[in-house]
């Protein structure tokens, strides 16, 4: 089993957080994990991409080089590199609330989900990343649902326990939407 993922969004959308949750979840499931991040001026508004590789075997190349089988584009500006970075047979997740004119996929699958709108309906647009994470986990089966819920509880509960419930709700909404 080998998942090569890229999680992209504008700074502040939380693409790095969902990447971190995937990493922690993979550790709980005793998988090997490698994460690399792009360098840049990643303050709010700048683009940010986290690359994560999960495997049950020792990982060779730690670099995701336009061969992601799971690509997540949370914003308009990062969508194109996700589109180009998805390999044949992979799945591209598009935040259709923000991405205008998504490309026509060829050789891979595209899941278009209005995660920002769904998060607003749930009470806070900041939950869009968690909605997307739910969809990714359900669609790809890369991790167990319970594992991710446990990581969300542990990771967010440590500092801000009031954030656990809304994030779990967003995660489950995304999980049920695909």
């Amino acid at each position: 089993m080998l998942f090569k993922c890229m999680f992209s969004g504008s700074g502040g959308q939380g693409s790095a957080l969902i990447a971190k949750i995937v990493c922690k979840g993979a550790m709980e499931e005793n998988l090997r994990v490698v994460m690399t991040q792009t360098y840049g001026i990643e303050q709010r508004g700048g683009d940010s991409t986290a690359f994560v590789i999960l495997s049950d075997e020792p990982i060779g190349s730690p670099i995701v080089e336009q061969d992601a089988n799971v690509a997540v584009g949370l914003s308009q500006t990062t969508y194109q590199s996700c589109f180009e970075g998805t390999c044949k047979g992979g799945v591209l997740f598009c935040n259709s609330s923000l991405v205008e004119n998504p490309g026509q996929e060829d050789g891979f699958e595209q899941v278009k989900l209005p995660v920002s709108d769904m998060a607003v309906e749930l009470g806070n647009v900041k939950g869009a990343n968690m909605v997307m994470l739910g969809a990714v986990v359900k669609k790809t089966g890369m991790l167990k649902k319970e594992t991710v819920e446990h990581v969300i509880e542990k990771l967010l509960g440590a500092k801000k326990p009031q954030l656990v419930e809304p994030n779990l709700k967003a995660f489950r909404a995304g999980y049920d939407a695909v």
Binding site: A26, R32, V34, T36, P62
Partner: peptide, 9 residues
């Protein structure tokens, strides 16, 4: 530096 900055288990 690429290996040094890579995060992994």
């Amino acid at each position: 530096g690429v290996t040094a900055q890579t995060t992994e288990t």
